Amino acid sequence: MSSSENVTKAWDVLGEALSMDPLDFEDHESWKFLGLGDLLAAATASDLKNLGLDVKTEDFTKYPTVGEFKTFLLRGDNTAPSNGAPAASPAQLNEPADPWEGIPKPKVPLSIALQGQASKAKVIVFLLPDGSGAGGSYGSLPRVSPDVCLIGLNSPFLRQAEAFTCTIERMARLWLDEIRKLQPKGPYVLGGWSAGGYYAFEVAKLLIAAGEKIGRMILIDSPCRLQFEALPEAVVGELTSKGLMGASGLKKAPEWLVQHFTSTVISVESYMPTPIAASDVPPVVNFIWVREGLVKDVAESGLNVDLTVKVTRFLLEPRGELKTVGWERLLPGARYEFDYMTGNHFQITQPPHVSASISACTYIG
C-alpha cells in the first residue's frame, strides 16, 4: 500500500470516528480539538491496525495535529524520528537540510544590540522583525533595565526582498544560529511585532526541539494565523498609495520597506502554525495590543478594501481590548498577561506610543 493510500484509508477511518468529512480536516487542527479523546484514539488506532497500518494510540500524541499525523503516514514506515524531534511540517519536507542553501549573503548584520550587552546582561530579549524586516525598528524603545539586553533581529532579505521566497519556518531556521551564538543556553525570551510574532513562535519551536526552554514570549499586536488571514497584497498596495503603509507622519514609507512587507505577506499566506506541546509552552506569554485602527472610519477614508477579510479589519478599524484571539490554541496552558497602548499598528515603535509597547519587558529585568 502506498503512503498516499495510507492517508486516504486513515482519513476515512478518522472521519467516521469523528463524524466529519475528511475533506474538512485542516493541517493546523489538533486531534484533541477535533474530539479524538483517549478512548476514541485507542479504538481508532485499533481500526487502523486492522487495515494494516502500524498506528499506536500514542501516535496521536506524538503527532498531535492533522498535518503532523499526515506527515507521519506519508513517510511510509510509520516510525517516529530517531532523534526524538517532532515530525516535520509539510512545508519543511521540501526544504534543504542547510537553511542557507541558495540564500544570498545578507546585506546587513542578522542582529543588532539595541540596549545593553549580551555578554553582561542577566536577560537577553530577542525581538524578531515585523513585515519591514528591520530589527532596528525596535531601536526607539525606552530603556528597559541595566540587566536586560535587547537584540533586534534583521531579516536576511533586508534590502534584497526580491530574494525572499522562503517559508516562515525556514526564516526561523536562518536566525537560529545567530540567537544561539549570542545566548548558547536557555531559558530564552523571544518577542515579535506583527509577523515577528510568527517568527518568534517558530524560533521557539526550534529551540524546544533542541532541548531548550523558553522562559517568556512577547507577542506585540500579532494577529494569530489560526484566526486571521495573511494581509492581501491589494491592501498593501492601497495603503502604500494612500501614505499609510508603515508611514510616520507625512513621511512616505521607503520602497525597500514596501517590497519586504509584500514578500512577507506572500510568505504568511502559506503559513499555518501547529501548537507547542503543553509541557513545553513558556510559562508566561505577554500580549501587547493597540486599541486604534489606521483610520477612524474606513468608509470615509477613501480606501478601496474588502472588509470581509478579518485581518484587513484588524489593521484598519478601532478595536476593543483584545485577548489571546487564537494564540491560546498554539500556546496552551501559559499564564497570559495583557497590556494595551495608544496608536495604531504601524505606530507601535513611534513616540509617544512607544513608551507603552515595551511594558512587558519591564517585568523581566
Rank of each mutant, 00 (worst) to 15 (best):
Ser355Leu: 11
Leu127Tyr: 11
Ala10Lys: 01
Gly243Trp: 05
Asp130Ile: 00
Ser82Gly: 10
Ala360Phe: 15
Phe228Met: 02
Val268Met: 13
Gly293Ile: 08
Gly139Val: 02
Ala91Asp: 13
Val268Phe: 06
Val125Asn: 11
Gln227Asn: 11
Glu321Gly: 05
Asp12Ile: 00
Lys296Asp: 15
Leu239Pro: 03
Arg159Gly: 03
Arg291Thr: 12
His28Tyr: 10
Thr61Leu: 06
Pro351Val: 11
Ser137Lys: 05
Ser263Ala: 14
Glu292Ser: 11
Glu337Ala: 13
Ala45Thr: 08
Ile266Asn: 12
Arg313Asp: 03
Thr65Lys: 03
Gly343Met: 15
Ser132Val: 00
Val189Met: 01
Ala209Thr: 05
Thr44Asn: 06
Trp100Gly: 05
Arg143Cys: 06
Ala134Tyr: 12
Gly76Met: 08
Ala163Trp: 12
Glu300Asn: 12
Pro106Ala: 06
Val125Ser: 11
Gly246Asn: 02
Lys49Arg: 13
Cys149Ser: 14
Asp47Arg: 14
Asp21Pro: 02
Ser3Arg: 10
Met1Ser: 13
Asp77Ile: 06
Lys296His: 14
Pro96Met: 05
Lys49Pro: 01
Gln92Pro: 09
Trp175Ala: 01
Leu176Glu: 03
Arg313Ile: 01
Leu153Ala: 03
Trp31His: 00
Leu73Asn: 04
Met20Ala: 00
Lys252Met: 02
Pro96Cys: 04
Gly191Thr: 02
Ala356Gly: 15
Gly131His: 03
Glu101Ala: 14
Gly102Gln: 09
Phe164Leu: 03
Asp280Gln: 10
Ile214Val: 08
Tyr336Glu: 07
Lys9Gly: 02
Val295Leu: 12
Gly197Val: 01
Val258Pro: 05
Gly196Tyr: 03
Pro99Trp: 07
Lys213Ser: 10
Thr342Leu: 13
Ser140Glu: 10
Pro90Phe: 07
Tyr363Ile: 09
Leu257Trp: 08
Glu229Phe: 10
Val311Ala: 03
Ala163Asn: 11
Met272Glu: 13
Met1Lys: 11
Arg329His: 15
Leu239Trp: 00
Pro273Thr: 04
Thr240Cys: 00
Leu294Trp: 04
Ala210Trp: 07
Ile358Met: 15
Gly186Ser: 08
Val235Thr: 10
Pro146His: 08
Ala134Glu: 08
Pro142Arg: 05
Ala277Glu: 12
Ser46Glu: 15
Leu330Met: 05
Leu18Phe: 01
Thr71Ser: 15
Leu244Gln: 08
Pro146Ser: 04
Gln92His: 06
Ile288Ala: 04
Glu101Ile: 06
Glu169Asn: 05
Lys252Thr: 05
Leu244Thr: 06
Ser132Gly: 13
Pro184Leu: 02
Gln259Cys: 07
Ala97Val: 07
Thr44Cys: 12
Ala278Cys: 10
Phe346Asp: 04
Ile348Lys: 05
Ala10Ile: 00
Ala87Thr: 09
Gly186His: 11
Pro223Gly: 02
Ala42Gly: 07
Leu23Asp: 01
Leu226Gln: 09
Lys185His: 04
Ala247Val: 02
Lys205Ala: 07
Arg335His: 14
Ile358Thr: 15
Ala277Ile: 04
Ser140Lys: 13
Ala45Arg: 07
Phe201Cys: 00
Trp327Ile: 03
Gly139Trp: 08
Glu229Gly: 10
Ala195Glu: 02
Ile103Phe: 14
Ala234His: 03
Val325Gly: 06
Gly333Trp: 15
Arg159Asn: 10
Leu141Gln: 06
Val144Ala: 15
